[in-house]
């Protein structure tokens, strides 16, 4: 059994545009797993429902949100446990790193206090022990002069350092699962790479599972074991990382990959944008949400609800598409060799 099993998660908010009682759906029947000690990627563009999904798992959605489905963590359904019990889970067993380190730290409380607060809350450590632990944590996330930094306020730290501090706070109680919601989006490109590497190292050495939410396929390629692609509040494709990058079957995924520049692409090849814009989530109907932007769409896509099914021979590759991208053997053999080559290089 996976550490986190999200099943049929649907989230809607009251107050659609126009009619008063309308509900606007943000997430519709999303299911995915995060295995213990693994990194699972949740990919999608803005508005695809990935952040809302993570907030629902943490129980941090506003009270007005209607949530259904289940999110079983270590055998407990996080969507069903009472708030008081959830407070004990948050921070200790599941922790979260947010997108913007500039605003996610309390500006009037010292960095040290913000770390020790969590330690003392969940481990009952003494003030002194928590202080020492906090210093070690800051040192571990690569903040120079950690003991001095404990006494400083967030505005005295740079953006990259603040995100490192956020990571230290999130990992303070050694949670089993770390949810990272676009952890590098607000950072400079050079810092992005450092912070991602740090997060990868930390979760690996602690055996922490991570749910990495991002719109950046480059981030996914570097860190994730499995990838779930969301579009307009639904999961459209799910596969192991190498499988997904080598053989994207859903038209949206392949479109995304075609729109990202690659170093190994032939010279002069143009990037392929996906035509159109993401649809307004309000006003769902049966059928594929991507159909209006899809070159292969026909009546089969629009009329009926498509299930998330496994892709023939590979049962770990799931997709929701009536006309998947044909499995191009030539191309994927090439990619396989490429991947193997990659792995050899990495292990060497």
């Amino acid at each position: 059994m996976a550490l986190l099993e999200v099943r049929d998660l649907s989230i809607s908010f009251p107050g659609g545009s126009g009619r008063g009682s309308a509900l606007s759906k943000a997430v519709d029947g999303v299911s995915f797993d995060v295995e213990a000690g693994q990194v699972a990627g949740l990919v999608g563009e803005s508005g695809s429902g990935k952040s809302v999904t993570s907030l629902a798992v943490m129980g941090l959605l506003p009270h007005t949100a209607r949530v259904s489905g289940s999110a079983s963590f270590d055998g407990r359904d996080l969507l069903a446990v009472p708030e008081r019990e959830l407070e004990g889970v948050r921070g200790r067993e599941v922790a979260m790193v947010f997108q913007d380190p500039m605003t996610s730290l309390n500006p009037v409380v010292t960095v040290g206090t913000q770390i020790t607060e969590v330690l003392r809350r969940h481990t009952g450590a003494s003030r002194r022990a928590a202080r020492d632990e906090a210093g070690e944590l800051l040192a571990r996330v690569g903040i120079p002069a950690p003991v001095r930094r404990l006494r400083e306020y967030p505005h005295q730290l740079s953006g990259g350092m603040r995100q490192r501090a956020m990571i230290a706070i999130a990992l303070a109680c050694s949670p089993k699962l770390l949810i990272a919601d676009e952890p590098t989006t607000a950072l400079d490109v050079t810092i992005q790479a450092q912070v991602l590497e740090l997060m990868g190292d930390l979760v690996r050495e602690r055996g922490t599972a991570m749910l990495l939410i991002t719109h950046d396929l480059g981030v996914v390629a570097g860190l994730c074991d499995t990838v779930t692609v969301m579009y307009s509040g639904r999961v459209v494709e799910r596969a192991d990382r190498h499988e997904l990058f080598a053989r994207p079957r859903h038209r949206y995924t392949s479109g995304l990959l075609a729109s990202v520049p690659r170093l190994d692409a032939p010279r002069g090849q143009r990037l392929q944008p996906i035509p159109g814009t993401p649809r307004d989530v309000i006003g769902w109907d049966a059928g594929c949400a991507f159909a209006p932007r899809c070159s292969a769409a026909d009546d089969a896509c629009r009329g009926t609800e498509l299930p998330l099914v496994s892709d023939g021979a590979r049962d770990r590759h799931l997709l929701r598409c009536a006309h998947p991208v044909p499995d191009q053997h030539d191309q994927h053999d090439q990619h396989d060799q490429h991947d193997q080559h990659d792995q050899q290089e990495r292990s060497a």
Binding site: L60, E87, G88, G91, M96, F98, D100, T103, L105, N106
Partner: peptide
């Protein structure tokens, strides 16, 4: 604000 969400996510009472 974000930091309030963040402290909530850490299980602070």
């Amino acid at each position: 604000s974000d930091y309030v969400l963040a402290v909530h996510s850490l299980g602070v009472r």
